[in-house]
Structures are given as C-alpha cells and as structure tokens.
Amino acid sequence: MDHPDIEQKLGGRGEEEQETRERILSAARQLMAQKGYKGATTRKISELAGVNEVTVFRHFKNKVGILTELLKEIMDVREQLEQGLQGEFADLKEMLVSYARTYYGLLVERKEIFMICMIEADNHPEVVQMFSSLPMTAVEVLSNKLLVFQEQGHLPKAVPFTAALMFVSTFFYAFMAKYRVNLDLEMVEEELFENASEILLQGIRGLK
C-alpha cells in the first residue's frame, strides 16, 4: 500500500538535506578561498552556513572530506567543454572563440576552488593533480576537435596538440593574472578571445 504523505515528507527532507549540504560546501568554499584550509575551521564553516557544527560532521566526516568534495567540482568539465565545440560555426575562428569563452567561463566559475588549490598546494600535494585536470582536459578536448580538421586536410600535421596547448595556456595565464595576482590585462575578455583565436590561426596558416 502506498503512503503518499510519508513519501512526500521523506522527499521534502531529502531536498532539505541536499540544500544543507550545498550551504556547507558554499561556506567552506568561500572561507577556504579567503583564509586557507587551516583558517576555515569547521566552527566558522558551520556559522557561515547557518548550521551547527554537528551537522557539518554529519554530512562530511571531517574537513578533508569537505575539501575533497570541493575539488571534485574542478574535474567535472568535459561535457561542458565539448558543448562549447558543438553547433554550426561559420569558420574555425568562430569555433575557437566559442571554445575560449566556454573554457574561460569555467575557470571563473571555479575561481574560489582554484584559489584553495593555490593556497594548499604545499600542504596537500595531491590537490595539484586535481588543480591541473581542468586545463589538461581542455587541451585534450580541443586537440581532439582539431585532429578532425587535420584529418580533413584543413590543418598541417603535428599541429592539433601543440595548438590546443598554446591556446588553452593563454586563457589559463589570463585567468591567473587577473584573479591570482590582480594584474590588469588592459583588454576585455571578448577581445582576448578574438585576438588569441586570430593569432593561433595565423600561426597555423604559416605552417602550410
């Protein structure tokens, strides 16, 4: 026999628990980016999340568990990157600009996580591998797409990986310069996307 009232209550509780979990992660993300791993105590995390400290430990065994969960956010990007290469493009430059916009946007969305990685790289060497996963995934996805163009005769041999690495590195540096060292690049982001795409294409054409 079904019990809709009970199921509704359980479903509502599940949503409430998920919301609490997200508040804890959001608070931890903010505090760790500002104060580092040590400075973001579970007490401060619980206060900012609006829950008691016991609730934090109920959702995550310890602070390392919170950090691990936060770092997982960096790795889940392949589908979004591939979507940035889908659709009808007038030419290769338009496709590159679209990809640059998608990739840079993912970096900005995760900037707090990246700051945590930078702060904790010495104390937790394992985060370096997770830290590098986003740019390296971006290189791989773009390289695979450029390989298709190469096989169709539109790009010279041995270009795809090198071109993808140079292209992705441009935006990773721009991101780090802006959000890590507060360097003014004197260029709006869309202009950077356009210019980097054009420079890459000119370099590729010069190899033919």
Score class of each variant (00 low, 15 high):
R110D: 07
I113D: 13
G84V: 00
L106R: 10
I119G: 14
Y99H: 15
D91N: 15
E79V: 03
F89V: 05
E120Q: 09
Q86H: 00
M118R: 02
L106I: 08
Y103A: 06
I74L: 15
T102N: 08
E79D: 10
T102W: 07
A90D: 02
E94R: 14
E79A: 06
R78S: 00
Q86Y: 00
R110M: 05
A121C: 08
I119M: 15
E88D: 15
M118I: 15
E94S: 15
Y104D: 08
T102Y: 06
G84L: 07
C117H: 01
A121N: 13
M115S: 08
E120T: 15
I74A: 05
E88W: 08
D76K: 14
E88S: 10
V97E: 02
M115E: 13
Y99K: 03
M118Q: 01
Y99P: 08
I119Q: 15
G87M: 03
C117F: 12
E73P: 00
F114E: 07
M75C: 13
V77R: 03
A121D: 05
E112M: 10
G105R: 09
R78C: 00
G105C: 09
G105M: 09
K93C: 11
V108M: 06
R101L: 06
Q83N: 14
E79R: 13
V108S: 04
L106T: 07
E120L: 04
A90W: 08
E82S: 04
V77T: 11
G87T: 02
E82P: 02
L96C: 13
F114A: 00
I74G: 02
C117T: 02
E79M: 01
A90L: 07
I74D: 00
M115P: 01
L81R: 01
K111W: 11
V108E: 10
L106N: 12
I74Y: 00
G84S: 04
E88P: 10
A100V: 11
I116R: 13
T102I: 13
L106Y: 04
R101Y: 05
C117S: 07
D76M: 11
R101S: 02
Y104A: 14
Q80N: 08
K111T: 12
L107A: 06
I116L: 08
Y104H: 12
D76A: 10
E112K: 11
A90S: 05
E109C: 05
Y103Q: 02
Q83P: 05
M95E: 09
Y103R: 05
L96N: 10
E73Y: 05
M95R: 11
I116V: 14
V97H: 06
I119H: 14
F114W: 10
L107I: 06
I119E: 14
R101I: 03
F89T: 03
T102K: 15
Y99D: 10
Y104Q: 04
Q83L: 13
K93A: 11
A121G: 06
L81H: 01
Q80R: 15
M115K: 10
E73T: 06
G87N: 04
A90Y: 07
E112D: 14
Q86C: 07
Y99V: 07
L107T: 00
V77K: 02
G84I: 07
L107H: 01
E82Y: 00
R110N: 12
M118K: 04
A121K: 14
K111C: 10
Y103T: 03
A100R: 02
